[in-house]
């Protein structure tokens, strides 16, 4: 069912952003077999800023996030329509290698998922398969820099050979962020990166995200509206597979335009 949502789309496209646009999504529809999960979503995602996707479970925010690095390719019954332009190039172009794309668009998941390898090898993994290091000392430098940026270096520098799984949950998540950063991505997707963490580990990750946004385009799905309010500059509200409203985070949380956004963020969803 291709429902008509012309009222929403033009508003979104007219939305101004201070930073240059990194990703321009146009009329995205996603189907799982006969089921339409995303309905005609158009959205501009600015560079060097955090964009948060919020909405109730099943609203399509994670599905939409997974479009941005073609993760839905791995699901046979999934079909994605529409154009996703990253720096002006269509990421769904058959000429684009999804593996290469995913080196440009890193992803961090809800549950920390370090490889069953050493801390060093976890971070080295991507750099090795993409051939980013010219030698051992170059690789060492990449590892140190990535762990530094992920705010983990001081805690692990003396035990780089220890297994990644020996770290605490929050440290593991920062390890996964270091692993994503190591391949020099331009975009980092985060699917509820803190929902398995305690408040202190969450605060560390949020602090880290705030630092990372100076270099990367970050898109984050979160169930915590307080988290979206704390870390993002732009917020997009999804409901039933549609984009209801997108705007500056401050505006969305103090004076949203749409009644459904208002109802959701004030805890009135019926």
């Amino acid at each position: 069912m291709a429902s008509a949502t012309p009222l929403i789309t033009p508003v979104v496209r007219a939305e101004r952003t201070d930073n240059p646009i990194k990703i321009d999504c146009r009329n995205i529809n996603v189907f799982y077999a006969d089921n339409q999960a995303i309905h005609d979503i158009s959205l501009l995602i600015p560079d060097r800023a955090v964009t948060a996707f919020i909405g109730p479970s099943g609203c399509g925010k994670s599905t939409f996030l997974r479009c941005l690095n073609r993760m839905n390719d791995t699901i046979d019954i999934a079909r994605v329509d529409g154009k996703i332009m990253m720096d002006g190039a269509d990421i769904n172009d058959p000429a684009i290698d999804p593996v290469l794309l995913r080196s440009r668009v890193g992803m961090v998941f809800q549950k920390p998922n370090p490889f069953p390898k050493s801390i060093y090898d976890n971070v080295a993994y991507g750099a090795r398969i993409h051939g980013l290091a010219s030698g051992k000392s170059d690789l060492d430098r990449i590892i140190e820099k990535s762990l530094h940026r992920a705010g983990l270096w001081e805690e692990v520098k003396d035990r780089l050979a220890a297994p990644g799984t020996s770290l605490s949950g929050g440290q593991q998540q920062r390890l996964c962020i270091a692993r994503a950063i190591a391949v020099n991505p331009e975009v980092i997707l985060m699917d509820e990166p803190c929902s398995a963490l305690d408040p202190i580990a969450t605060a560390r990750i949020e602090e880290l995200i705030d630092e990372l946004r100076e270099r990367y385009c970050i898109v984050m799905v979160t169930h915590s509206m307080q988290q979206a309010a704390r870390v993002s500059q732009r917020t997009a509200f999804f409901h039933l597979g549609k984009l209801i409203e997108v705007g500056d985070t401050e505006t969305i949380f103090t004076n949203p335009t749409n009644q459904r956004t208002q109802d959701y963020i004030t805890g009135r969803f019926g």
């Binding site: 307080q226 949380f253 103090t254 004076n255 949203p256 963020i265 004030t266 805890g267």
Partner: peptide, 9 residues
């Protein structure tokens, strides 16, 4: 309650 939007206002 961490009120938002109209509740916050």
């Amino acid at each position: 309650r961490q009120p938002m939007a109209s509740d916050l206002r």
